[in-house]
């Protein structure tokens, strides 16, 4: 006991601090380099890992958001998960999510790659194109649904006016074509991370490689497949992983735009988890949906990394 008090006494702490500072000054910092990791890891563990584990625990209980069950909940094993298997809305929302993610991924990635090529090309207007293409990123996420709602308005919306100019009939975007509209909104500001990462990767490719191609008369396709693609492989995979994670996780647009609407046609899994947990108060069930989503993302990420190693 006395030892403990002695150890934590002010003079001892002061002495320890003094020693640490002296060691840092005299160049023994290598010992303290791991300490640099500590703050970031603490933050991540407290605010990311602990809630995750907590949510996994909830998914095995019958906790509810309202009433007695919020405090007196029981461990029920895998019941939530077996209920999920028989839930038609869950499977519906699973297929909806897959559709949404695949289309979003393809479009966001294609636009991002194309944009990256434009802004790294030797066109004279490239500098201005960057500024224009980055603008959507500066529009905050809560504002984007409002902007697009006005674009997609059936009677007065700009998009239908443009369609009328071409001679096409107006579309009921928000109701009849809910999925297309949501994907369109998601891709509008979603390509920018991919664009920046890929453009940086393209810029880091040495110019000489292309000059050699020029000398040997290689075609554009050859140049792309055998020089550009292998050299930007790693950023490319990371891009795909990040985009996929964002798509499956983020439900702001669906939430504000269609609320899962018409007939669960835009009910993404994350939105379904939210509805279950906060609208029907079945928190345990909602957490189970969340865990399923996390497992899917985890497996797909592993698969992408594995595939990239084989290729």
């Amino acid at each position: 006991m006395l030892k403990l008090i002695k150890f934590f006494s002010l003079s001892n702490i002061y002495k320890l601090l003094h020693r640490v500072l002296r060691d840092i000054k005299s160049g023994l910092i290598d010992i303290y380099l791991p300490l640099f990791l500590v703050p970031a890891l603490t933050l991540l563990i407290v605010f990311q890992l602990i809630p995750t584990i907590w949510a996994i625990w909830y998914s095995f209980t019958d906790i509810e958001l309202l009433g007695r069950k919020l405090f007196e909940y029981n461990f029920i094993g895998f019941e939530n998960y077996s209920d999920l298997g028989e839930d038609p809305i869950f499977w519906k929302s699973m297929s909806v999510t897959m559709e949404y993610c695949i289309y979003s991924l393809v479009i966001r990635f294609t636009i991002g790659l194309a944009a990256a090529f434009y802004i790294t090309s030797k066109m004279r207007i490239a500098k201005y194109i960057v500024a224009l293409l980055l603008l959507p990123y500066t529009i905050p996420g809560t504002v984007i649904p409002y902007i697009w709602l006005s674009m997609l308005d059936t009677r007065y919306g700009t998009l239908n006016r443009l369609l009328a100019l071409v001679g096409l009939p107006p579309q009921s975007w928000v109701y009849r074509r809910a999925m297309e509209s949501v994907i369109m909104i998601n891709c509008w500001a979603g390509y920018i991370m991919a664009m920046l990462i890929l453009a940086s990767a393209l810029k880091s490719i040495p110019e000489e490689y292309y000059e050699v191609c020029e000398i040997y008369g290689a075609s554009r396709l050859f140049r792309f497949l055998h020089i550009t693609l292998p050299l930007i492989k790693y950023p490319l995979i990371l891009c795909i992983i990040l985009i996929f994670k964002e798509d499956i996780d983020d439900f702001t647009y669906v939430y504000m735009f269609t609320e899962g609407g018409p007939h669960y046609r835009t009910e993404l899994l994350s939105l379904y988890a939210y509805h279950k947990a906060f609208a029907y108060y079945e928190l345990g069930y909602g957490c189970a949906v969340g865990v399923i989503v996390a497992i899917i993302v985890f497996l797909l990420t592993l698969a992408q990394i594995k595939l990239s190693r084989i290729a």
Binding site: A55, V293, A294
Partner: peptide, 14 residues
């Protein structure tokens, strides 16, 4: 990278 893969919404109550 993987640490953030749990959907935000499931983590909300914890």
């Amino acid at each position: 990278l993987i640490i953030g893969f749990m959907p935000t919404i499931a983590k909300l109550l914890p």
